[in-house]
Design a protein around this nucleic acid. Structure first.
Length: 110
DNA sequence: TGCTTGACGATCA
DNA sequence: GTGATCGCCAAGC
């Protein structure tokens, strides 16, 4: 599985490492993978992540802390609901105290 | 085979 | 400070 070393697989691995109650951005993941501008690919990878339920895509938002991908869930409200269930404040699809709950994949290296 | 789209990000105007 | 454009790589048509 990991032998594929696909962008997607790498993204899934990082997303799975996101601790509960924390969120990260597409750019942060892309940057961790060595690509600062391939955030689009991260989002595209998340689209394929629907096959991987182990991937908490709801913990991944854009750099503004906005739930841009909520519309891709079974229900648009599902993403916000999941985040709130983890203790993350989400108002109008916007994560409150984003930088406070923001988690950088680089922390796993520490 | 080639162009367009896509859950973003950064920079330029 | 806001708006628009380019860049990234991959998949769909």
């Amino acid at each position: 599985m990991s032998q594929r070393s696909s962008f997607f697989q790498d993204v899934y691995d990082v997303v799975k490492l996101i601790p509960k109650g924390r969120v990260t951005s597409y750019g942060a993941i892309g940057k961790y993978l060595g690509m600062t501008s391939s955030a689009r690919m991260v989002g595209w990878a998340m689209n394929a992540s629907h096959h991987n339920r182990e991937v908490p895509a709801h913990r991944v938002v854009n750099r503004s802390g906005v739930l841009t991908g909520k519309h891709f869930f079974d229900r648009p409200n599902r993403m916000q609901e999941l985040l709130i269930a983890e203790g993350i404040e989400v108002i109008d699809d916007q994560i409150q105290h984003f930088e406070a709950v923001f988690w950088d994949p680089s922390e796993v290296l520490l």
